[in-house]
């Protein structure tokens, strides 16, 4: 098994309270399913949409660093046989309902 990082990019999840709750529930269910199948290494964390970009002592500026549709909103660490399986597993991610996408990156091995 190898490890992969899911980077969640973009996606606008605003809506009516009911829609948002349903969307949230989809995420919870999806991650739970990944866990039951034994693919969840670390459910990860959400990230604030703003921060600092540091390019040296005198070059610290405010984010955002990318267009809203590309901003990383969170990450999850998964285990899979290979990158093909890792990518397949991300297809069920509810982020696609809101126009976002998942970037799947293999963790380099020692």
């Amino acid at each position: 098994m190898s490890e992969f990082l899911y980077l969640y990019r973009g996606g606008d999840s605003s809506g009516t309270p009911e829609q948002m709750q349903k969307h949230m529930q989809k995420w919870v269910d999806w991650l739970k399913e990944l866990g039951t199948k034994g693919h969840l290494k670390d459910q990860g964390n959400p990230l604030e949409r703003t921060g600092k970009v540091v390019k040296g002592r005198k070059a610290i500026s405010d984010g955002p660093f990318a267009e809203a549709k590309d901003i990383v909103g969170g990450y999850t660490l998964v285990e899979a046989k290979d990158i093909a399986q890792a990518a397949d597993l991300s297809v069920g991610c509810p982020i696609f309902d809101t126009g976002g996408f998942v970037e799947v990156r293999p963790i380099m091995k020692m």
Binding site: S13, Q43, N45, P46, G73, G74
Partner: peptide
């Protein structure tokens, strides 16, 4: 209110309710 729901959604979806 919308803001609070957005935050809840972002955090809960990964960290659980």
């Amino acid at each position: 209110v919308q803001d609070a729901f957005c935050r809840a959604l972002e955090v809960w979806k990964l960290r659980g309710v």
